[in-house]
């Protein structure tokens, strides 16, 4: 096996040491700093981008929260307005009801007064008629003059009696 030819060991080792030192220097001084630089820049950039994204997300969340607060406020306002309007409507209705009731009551009272007046008048007329009728009836029956005062008295008594009975 050529691997065990001892005379080949020295030249291989010499060139291995030379080439490996060259590689070490090239890597340590040139290649690795470049790759490290690229990686670091990107890692920084990605972190920045993600931070920015997170920031934008929190901003969006704030906006959404504000929007929702405004919406809730508007809804509250609307409800208050509705409640207010309801109250006002109720109050107006109550007032109208009261007015109508009052008007009706007044009318009823007026009607009652009119009825009373008519009744009184009717009664007064009734007394006159009754007295005349009674006087005429008594004169026909008795064939003599009956004093108007007596008749009136008798009628009043009869009316009194009737009113008491009914």
């Amino acid at each position: 096996m050529p691997q065990f030819w001892m005379e080949d060991f020295a030249p291989q080792m010499v060139w291995l040491v030379i080439s490996f030192i060259a590689l070490y220097l090239l890597m340590a001084r040139v290649a690795l700093p470049r790759v490290a630089d690229v990686l670091e820049t990107r890692h920084g950039r990605i972190a920045d981008d993600l931070d920015q994204a997170a920031q934008l997300k929190s901003q969006a969340e704030t906006v959404i929260a504000e929007y929702e607060a405004a919406l809730a406020k508007a809804r509250g306002d609307a409800q208050a307005t509705i409640a207010q309007a309801g109250l006002e409507a109720t109050a107006a209705a109550d007032k109208r009801n009261a007015e109508i009731a009052e008007a009706l009551a007044a009318e009823a009272a007026a009607a009652a007064a009119r009825i009373d007046a008519a009744k009184t008048e009717a009664l007064a007329e009734l007394r006159g008629v009754a007295t005349e009728l009674a006087q005429a009836a008594a004169e026909r029956l008795l064939g003599a003059e009956v004093a108007a005062g007596d008749v009136e008295q008798a009628v009043d008594a009869a009316i009194q009696d009737n009113a008491g009975r009914s």
């Binding site: 890692h43 990605i46 972190a47 993600l50 994204a53 997170a54 997300k57």
Partner: peptide, 15 residues
């Protein structure tokens, strides 16, 4: 969902 995606991206980036 967006939050999840951001943290996933962070994780994928090895951060």
């Amino acid at each position: 969902e967006l939050g999840g995606r951001i943290s996933k991206a962070r994780h994928d980036a090895g951060l």
